[in-house]
Simulated assay, not measured.
Amino acid sequence: MTAFFAALAEHEFLQSALIAGLLASIGCGVMGTYVVVKRIAFLAGGIAHSVLGGMGAALYFGSDPLSGALVAAVAAALLMGWVRLRWKAQEDTLIGALWAIGMAVGILFIAKTPGYQTDLMSYLFGNILLVPQASLWFMVALDALLLSIVGAYHRQFLAVVFDEELARLRGIPVTFFYLLLLVLVALTVVLLIRVVGLILVLALLTLPAAVAGHYVHSLGAMMLLATLLGGVVSTLGLALSYGPDLPVGPVIILLAGALYIVSALFTQSRARRRARASVVTAATGGKAVG
C-alpha cells in the first residue's frame, strides 16, 4: 500500500483513477441510499444489466459505448418504472424479462460488430486505471446533475420513498417523481460503470448505503456516510490492488462486501446484547444485577 501512495504522486493515471473512484462514491452514496431505503435493488439491477443493449448498439454503429449506455439506462428506467406502476402482479417476471432482453440485444449487436471489442471488456468488468480525462468531466457533470435535482426535490423524493399513499394525499405527483428517481438511479449506474463495470455495479450502488443504514436513520446522514464509505472502499481497493496487479473493480466490491458482512454481524450482535439486557432489567425490576 505504501508503494501505491508513492506512485500516486508520480503517475497521472493513478490520480485519475482515484478521482474517478471519489466521483463515483458521490453518486453511489446519494442514489444508493434511495435504492436501499425504497428497496428497489432488483429494479436497479434490471436497469444496470439492460444497459448492455445500448452499449452494444452504440459499438455497432460506431458511437461511444457510454453514450449508448446513458440512453439505454434512461429508457430502461422509464420502462421498468412503468411496469412496476402498472403491472404489480407480474412485476418481478416482467422486469426479469426486460433485464434478459436488454442483455441479449447487447450480445447480438456485439457479435455483429467487427473485431475484438477490448473497450467493451472494460465497461463490463471495469477498468478504473484507464479512465480518460473526458470521462472524468462526464462523471463530474453527472454528479452535478444528480446533486442539483436531489437538492431541489429532496422533500418530494423523501415522501415517495417512505409513503407513496401519503405523498398522493399531499398532492405530490408520485408517478412523476418515482420515474424521475429511477432515471437518476440509471444515471448513477452509468456513473459507476467505469469504476467497477456493468457486472458489479449493483453491489457498489447498494452496499455502502446498506452499511450506513446500520448506524444512522436520517436519510441525509445516511447519504453522507454512504458517500464517505464509498470513497474509502474505492481508495483502499485501488491501493490494495496496485501491488499484486489485481483487477481494481473486483477488489473494491470484495472490500465493500466484507465491510457489509462485518457490519451486519456487529449490529446483529449488538441488538442481541441489548435485547438480553432489557430482559434482565425487566426481570430484576430495573435494578442493577450483581
Rank of each mutant, 00 (worst) to 15 (best):
G171I: 00
R86N: 15
L169F: 08
Y153T: 06
V105N: 06
P114R: 04
I107M: 14
M103I: 11
A72P: 02
P132A: 12
V161Y: 00
L70A: 07
L124R: 06
L120T: 10
Y178A: 05
A75Y: 06
L136S: 10
P114K: 04
V160I: 13
D92F: 03
R86L: 08
G102K: 08
I172F: 00
E91L: 04
A69L: 05
A97E: 04
E164T: 00
R84L: 10
F157R: 01
P132R: 10
E165D: 14
D119F: 12
Y178Q: 11
G115L: 10
I149K: 00
V174L: 03
I128F: 11
E164D: 12
L98I: 05
N127D: 15
L78I: 15
A141Q: 04
F109Y: 14
H154I: 02
L129A: 13
D119P: 07
P65N: 13
L180E: 07
N127S: 14
A73W: 05
A104V: 08
A159C: 04
S63W: 12
V140S: 08
L124Y: 06
D64T: 03
L120P: 04
L66A: 13
A73V: 04
A89N: 12
A104G: 10
F138D: 10
L108G: 06
L179C: 09
K112R: 13
L66Y: 06
Q156N: 08
L158D: 09
I101W: 12
L180W: 01
L85N: 09
L136Y: 05
I149F: 01
I172Y: 01
V140P: 06
K112V: 12
A111W: 05
T93H: 08
L94A: 03
D119A: 15
A73P: 04
G115A: 13
S135T: 15
L180G: 08
G151E: 01
I110K: 07
S63Q: 14
W137T: 15
I101A: 14
G102L: 11
F176I: 01
G62Q: 11
L182I: 15
D163G: 00
S63M: 13
A159H: 02
L98E: 00
K88M: 13
Q156R: 11
A104T: 12
A141C: 05
